[in-house]
Computed example of a mutant assay.
Amino acid sequence: MSESFDLGRNVSRETSERFYHYVHLLRKWNPAINLVARSTIDDVGRRHLADSAQIFDLAPADAQIWADLGSGGGFPGLVAAILAADERPHLRLTLVESDQRKAAFLATVSSELGLKTKIRAERIESLGPLNAEILSARALAPLASLLSFSERHLASGGVALFPKGANHQVEIDQALEDWKFSYQKTPSRTDPDAVILTIGGITRV
């Protein structure tokens, strides 16, 4: 490998090689289908890989079913799948992405890297309940909308992991108008203004 990425954590050699292959495919496909902003492609390690890896590190280690909504270029879903291949082989990930071209990218990466993922090229609202023990979504929708998705797809006792930016408290306050939930904020390792929200006990008010 001629390139390494700062993931903010240690990984095995095999995992590092998978990330290298993943980024190679990301850069190959990105000009055609805009998987990530061009301004971030040269800093993909910090902006996307490390940012997603920290979400994986907050996920319950004993969970077996993880659903990532609006996976796009695979953040955090593919990153979690790559880390899980070596560290949590019992974990199965479902990546939901309605854009057919992006879903094809996710399927290609999963196949070439030998990842245990299921790609669902459907709209989140039209899917039957996924009963996920872990639910994630990165840069997809306001928190109130994500809680509506969680109500449908999160298993009883499961946790939702949602990275949010500088206005996260505003989103929390707005969501609390219609939802009751517990939450914990973990400061982001890649953005001083951002947090990862760990959310559970989601019910409508």
Rank of each mutant, 00 (worst) to 15 (best):
F75N: 05
T186Q: 13
F105Q: 08
A194V: 09
T203L: 08
G8M: 04
H21I: 13
E87Q: 15
E112I: 08
G70Y: 02
R46H: 14
L143A: 01
S145N: 10
K164W: 08
A32L: 14
L161H: 06
A166C: 01
R47E: 11
A107R: 13
G165S: 05
K118H: 12
V159P: 00
R92W: 12
R47I: 02
Y22L: 12
A137H: 08
L130P: 01
I82Q: 11
R27V: 02
G157W: 03
S2F: 13
L154G: 02
S4V: 14
G114V: 13
L95R: 02
A104S: 14
V205E: 08
F181G: 04
L147R: 03
W179L: 06
H168Y: 15
D68C: 03
E171C: 02
L58P: 06
T198Q: 14
M1H: 14
T15D: 12
G200R: 07
R46N: 11
Y183D: 04
S126K: 04
A144T: 07
R120L: 15
A139P: 01
D86I: 04
F56R: 03
L147S: 04
S111P: 00
H168D: 07
R38W: 02
R204I: 07
E97V: 11
R101Q: 15
L146N: 00
S12L: 11
P142S: 03
K28F: 13
I65N: 11
R38T: 12
L69A: 06
L135R: 04
T108P: 00
V23K: 05
V36I: 15
S16K: 10
L58N: 08
H21E: 15
L197F: 04
A67K: 02
H168P: 01
V195F: 09
G74K: 02
G77M: 05
L147M: 11
R204W: 03
N34S: 11
A139R: 02
S71Y: 03
N34C: 05
R204K: 13
S145P: 00
P129W: 14
F5I: 08
L91T: 13
P31V: 12
I196H: 00
R189K: 13
Q54H: 03
E14Y: 07
W66R: 07
L135C: 09
T186V: 15
E14F: 09
R88H: 10
G165R: 02
Q54S: 03
R27W: 06
L69Q: 07
L143Q: 02
I33R: 07
A144Q: 03
F56E: 06
L130H: 02
G114L: 13
L146H: 01
S126F: 06
L135Q: 03
P142W: 10
D43A: 13
E171G: 01
V11T: 15
K102L: 09
L69N: 05
S148L: 10
A121E: 07
N30D: 13
V96E: 11
G45Q: 09
G72T: 12
D51V: 09
L83R: 08
Q174C: 01
R88W: 10
H90A: 15
V170K: 07
H48Q: 09
I65W: 09
L113E: 12
E97A: 10
R18F: 12
L115I: 13
D51S: 11
Y22P: 10
L115T: 11
S39Y: 05
Y22V: 11
V109R: 04
A155H: 04
